[in-house]
Every structure is written in C-alpha cells, then in structure tokens.
C-alpha cells in the first residue's frame, strides 16, 4: 500500500483529504510537527507528498527546495495560490505536479496515480487473471488471441483494473475519460462499457465487470 503524506495546516482539509485517500486505497499520514518538517518526512519516507504552500514556520516552496537537496520523493503542490508564476516557481523547485484549490477530488486522485506511475517507471503490460493487457498497444491477449481496444475502452478498463474489487462510480470513469481529452457524454459511456464487456466475453470473462445499481461498476 502506497503511503501518502499530507502537509497542510487546515484541520478540516487534513481530515477529509486523509479520508479520501484511505477510501481510495492509500495509506495516509498527516504531518503534525511543522517545525521539523524535513526531518519528519525523511523519517517516515512516504511514497508521495501533498504539499501546501501556506504552512507554518517555513513556506511550502522553501521546504520543497530544502527537501530536494536530499530526496527525490514525488511532491504534488496543492495550493490556493493560482498564478502562473507560482506554478512555474514550484515546478522549478522540483515539484512533480501542481494543483490549485478547490480541486475536484477525483482529479486529485488521478494526478496522484499519474505521478506515482511516473516515479515507478511505468509498466506497459499488466495482467488480469490469465489476460495480458498491453497498455501501449491497446491490446488484450489470451492464449495467442489478440483483441484490440479503442482508446476509450482502454481508459475504462485500466481504471477498473487499478481499482479492482472496489466499486467505481460512473463519475470517476467519466472524469478519467475527460482527463484524457475524451469529452464523451453519458450515452457514449454506456455504449463503451457494453462494448468492453463484449470484448471481454470473447476471451471468456463474460461477467468480469458487474453493475452495482445506483453505485457504479466493479471489476471482479
């Protein structure tokens, strides 16, 4: 389980953010001692840090600069400062991404996932049961049988795969699609999911994607 550290001084955001992360399958921890921020980070060695700019004692940018001298832990700046200058500065200090408040929680999760993937040298081929999924080629493969997925189908399938055994809402799938510049509507999402099901049926996984009424889908 990936460990994410929240560096943020507002207690409500701390609480809700950590709840969001835990619900999405991450382990979250909240930095309490801002005075010894760098020490705490290095001691706990998180996989990723969500860092606010306006924090006590030292601002987030300075902390980031300081941290980069010793560590390459991925850092996403999460802040209400929203000028281009702030963003360019943070990125030049070594941030991996920059998100402004208020953010859409699903988008935050997608960005976290993307940064973690980049940090762990992305994998091109993943497996699901006896199925090999080649993300780059857009192909699923079983016993030498190859089936091509469209870009949309692949986005949906890999999102379900990354969140296996958890109910995924239609909104999450939609957000991921729109995040990949596929601006489709509700009907198109339904069509894409039934096409994906048909393709999975061809390789013998007819009931892999289950519909949970009024909640979403789950990949079993």
């Amino acid at each position: 389980m990936k460990k994410i550290m929240i560096i943020e001084d507002d207690p409500t955001i701390q609480k809700e953010l950590s709840k969001l992360l835990e619900n999405s399958g991450y382990q979250s921890m909240i930095l309490e001692n801002f005075k010894e921020a760098k020490k705490e980070i290095l001691k706990n060695a998180p996989d990723l840090i969500l860092l606010d700019i306006n924090i006590p004692y030292m601002n987030g940018e300075a902390l980031l600069q300081n941290l980069r001298k010793e560590s390459n832990i991925p850092v996403i700046m999460v802040t209400s400062r929203n000028t281009e200058i702030d963003e360019v500065l943070s990125m030049s200090y070594g941030a991996d991404d920059y998100i402004t408040k208020p953010y859409h929680p699903t988008i935050l999760l997608l960005r976290i996932e993307a940064v973690l993937k980049r940090a762990n040298a992305s994998v091109d081929v993943i497996t699901y049961k006896e199925l090999k999924i080649n993300l780059k080629k857009g192909v699923i493969e079983k016993n030498q049988k190859e089936i091509y997925l469209t870009k949309n189908e692949m986005i949906i399938f890999s999102y379900l795969l990354n969140n296996q055994n958890r109910i995924v809402t239609r909104d999450e799938l939609m957000t991921d699609l729109w995040n990949n510049e596929e601006y489709i509507n509700d009907n198109a999402l339904t069509v894409n999911i039934s096409r994906l099901r048909a393709k999975l049926k061809e390789v013998g996984y007819e009931d892999a994607i289950e519909t949970r009424k009024k909640m979403g889908y789950i990949l079993l």
Binding site: I13, S80, K101
Partner: peptide
Amino acid sequence: WIHDVKIPLSSLTLMAHNYQ
C-alpha cells in the same frame, strides 16, 4: 481574502465527495 475563502471551499468539495 480569496485564498482564505478557498480553504473552506476545498473542505466542502472534499466533504461533498466523501459523503456523496
């Protein structure tokens, strides 16, 4: 003031998601 307002706005957005 706007930065200040954005903090409760963020909290509310997160809460709305967590209790959707």
